[in-house]
Design a protein around this nucleic acid. Structure first.
Lengths: 105, 105
DNA sequence: ATAATAGTTCGACATGTTTCGAATTATAGT
DNA sequence: ACTATAATTCGAAACATGTCGAACTATTAT
């Protein structure tokens, strides 16, 4: 029922994860699957593997891994091994939950 | 035009400000002026003075002052001296801007 | 089996953050 | 002028974070 981030601790953990410019860029890349200005209706989230997500960020693989782990621990990003790669995605309900913290539906 | 937080830097600064449990509590107190579950229509934001905002948080005045300053520097909270007190409030447009980062209107 | 590719874990170091108390400024009342 | 209340600034201590390279694990292909 989109009640993630219902405690203050869970919320501040989510914001902490987004407080780093590199992590925000990673999250943003996973989040923005639609054309700018349009409302995203995707029911299936876009997936990127770890390596592709870090493209252009100029950080070491170990640092990239660390950041994704933080986003995952904060409940913002899902991760799943797929062969040699690990795929990452954002559940649309999480976006809804965070959005409605600032403006209840 | 609700285009605050348009750069990644401004956004991550805002999230950093909300990443601390004490600051999130302060922001939340300023933010929630309406009954739970209802949509907030207030055109004039609620105001609290610094001291009242810190009530029940068990932090030193200097720490409280520091946190409010951070929220202000991140563009989340407005502050204005009013006699002996300093009043704090949240501009409703800021909430809208943050909300629409996660879910564009 | 060996090698190649994709990610993760670990330890270390530099940098930032949280917090406090003491000293300081701002304002209002006596 | 003096005092009381409200809030800020400063410096210091403890703790957390961001980053890297080296070593490691997982998976696939030869």
């Amino acid at each position: 029922m989109s009640n993630y981030y219902d405690t203050e601790q869970a919320l501040s953990d989510a914001f902490k994860a987004l407080s780093n410019p590199h992590r925000l860029a990673l999250f943003n890349r996973l989040m923005s699957c639609c054309m700018p200005g349009t409302k995203c209706d995707a029911t299936v989230a876009v997936r990127f593997c770890v390596g592709d997500l870090g493209e252009g960020l100029n950080i070491a693989p170990s640092t990239l891994s660390h950041h994704l782990k933080e986003l995952n621990r904060a409940g913002l990003v899902e991760m799943e091994r797929k062969g040699k790669n690990v795929e990452c995605w954002v559940e649309p309900e999480k976006l809804k939950a965070l959005s409605s913290f600032f403006q209840p539906d």
